[in-house]
Design a protein around this nucleic acid. Structure first.
Lengths: 194, 194
DNA sequence: CAATTTCTTGTATGATCATACAAGTTTTTT
DNA sequence: AAAAAACTTGTATGATCATACAAGAAATTG
C-alpha cells in the first residue's frame, strides 16, 4: 500500500514542520505559508492533507499527547509498587523524547490557546483528566484521604511549572536533571509525614 | 489638572477592558474593536491614547506586573526574618488582588507570547529577574549553597504551575487556600534537611 | 502505454483587522 | 463667548492570511 505510506510520511513531515514553526513564530503568528516553507512544501498541500489549519493544529497537539502517552507507558512497564508507578508517571513528563525546548514551547502555547479553540480544548481536557487519574490511582494506595487531593495538585502544578520555565528558554535544566528534581520532590512529598 | 486625570481614567478603563477581553477571546484573537466594545469606546480612541495595539498590550502587562509588585511590597512590610520574607514573597503571588481567573489567564497568555513580542519579552525578563533575585536573597540566609539554586527553581516552577492551572479554569482553589498550600510547600522545602 | 488516481502548486478570492485621517464634539482657557 | 486644546468617532486604506480552485506533474493501475 504505497498510497498510505506516502500520506503518512507527509503527515509526519508537516506535523513536525508545524512544531518547529510554532516554536519559531508562536502559535498566534504562525502562518500556513511559514509551515509549508519549513516543510519544503506549499501551503496548498497542507490543506490537501489536513483540510484546514485548524486540523493541522489539532493533529500537532495529538502528536504531543501521543509522545507523553508513549513515554508514560514505557516507564510503567517495569514498575512493581504504587510508589514506583507514581515516580514513573512523573518522570515520564521529563522524558528525553518530550522535554525539549521546541516541544515545551509548543505545549505551553497549546495550553494557553486551548480555552479559545474547541478542538484543542477537547484534547486538552482529555489529557488532563488522564494524567490526573493516573496520579490519583497511585496516590490512593500511598496517602490517606485528606492530603491526597492537595498532593495531586501540587505534583501537577510543579510539572506544569517546569514546562513553563523550559518554554521561557531561560536556564533550562537538561531532561535528566529535571527527572531527578521531579523525583526528589515527589518522594519528599510522599514522605513528608514522617 | 483636569487634563491628566481624564487621560489616566481612560488609560485605566482601556487596560481593564483589555484584560477582560483577552480573558474572553484570547491574546491571539482579541481585536481592537472587541476591546473598544468592552470599554464602551471606539477602536480609534485606543489608538489615540496608546498609539498602537502593541503598546496597549505592553501597558496591560505592566499593569499585571505592578499588581504583583504592590502585593509583594505590602506583604514584606511586617516581616522580620528571612523565612518570613520568603513566605511573604511566595504568598504575594496568590494575593486576592492577583489570583483571579482573568488575571491568571491573561498572565499565562502573556508568558506564552513573550518570546515572540519584543516589548513583552523585555518586561517578562525584567519581572522574572526581580522575582528570582528576591527569592535568592532570602534563600541565601536560609539554605546552604548546593541546594539553594534548585530550591529557587522548584518554588518558582510551583508558582508558575499553580497559575497555569488556575488559567485552565479547572478546579481552581481560592486565593486563600492557594496561599496556604504555597506556604506549606515552601516550609516543607526549607525544613527538608531535618 | 493509456487511463486513472494521487499528489502538488500558483493564483485568485474574500475575510479580517490595525491604523491613518479628517471631520466632528466636548472641554478648557483666556 | 471666542479661541484653542483635548477628545471621539466613522470610514477608508492597505496589509495579511486561510482557503478554494483549476491546471498540471507524478505515480499507479490495467
Amino acid at each position: 500500500m504505497e498510497r498510505k505510506r506516502i500520506r503518512d510520511i507527509r503527515n509526519d513531515e508537516l506535523v513536525e514542520a508545524a512544531i518547529r514553526s510554532i516554536h519559531g513564530c508562536g502559535f498566534g503568528r504562525v502562518t500556513m505559508a511559514e509551515i509549508a516553507r519549513e516543510a519544503g512544501a506549499s501551503a496548498a498541500s497542507i490543506n490537501y492533507y489536513f483540510g484546514s489549519k485548524d486540523r493541522l493544529m489539532e493533529e500537532t497537539m495529538r502528536r504531543l499527547l501521543s509522545v507523553l502517552r508513549t513515554a508514560t507507558l514505557a516507564r510503567l512497564v517495569d514498575t512493581r509498587t504504587p510508589r514506583e508507578r507514581l515516580v514513573a508517571i512523573v518522570e515520564a513528563n521529563f522524558d528525553d523524547t518530550l522535554f525539549t525546548p521546541a516541544q515545551c514551547s509548543v505545549w505551553i502555547q497549546f495550553w494557553a490557546n486551548a480555552p479559545y479553540a474547541p478542538s484543542l480544548a477537547r484534547l486538552h481536557r482529555i489529557n488532563r483528566a488522564r494524567v490526573a487519574s493516573n496520579i490519583r490511582r497511585e496516590l490512593r494506595q500511598l496517602v490517606p484521604e485528606p492530603a491526597r487531593e492537595r498532593l495531586q495538585m501540587t505534583i501537577q502544578a510543579y510539572m506544569d511549572g517546569v514546562w513553563t520555565e523550559a518554554a521561557q528558554g531561560g536556564a533550562v535544566p537538561d531532561a535528566a536533571s529535571a527527572r531527578a528534581d521531579a523525583r526528589a520532590l515527589t518522594e519528599l512529598l510522599l514522605d513528608q509525614g514522617r
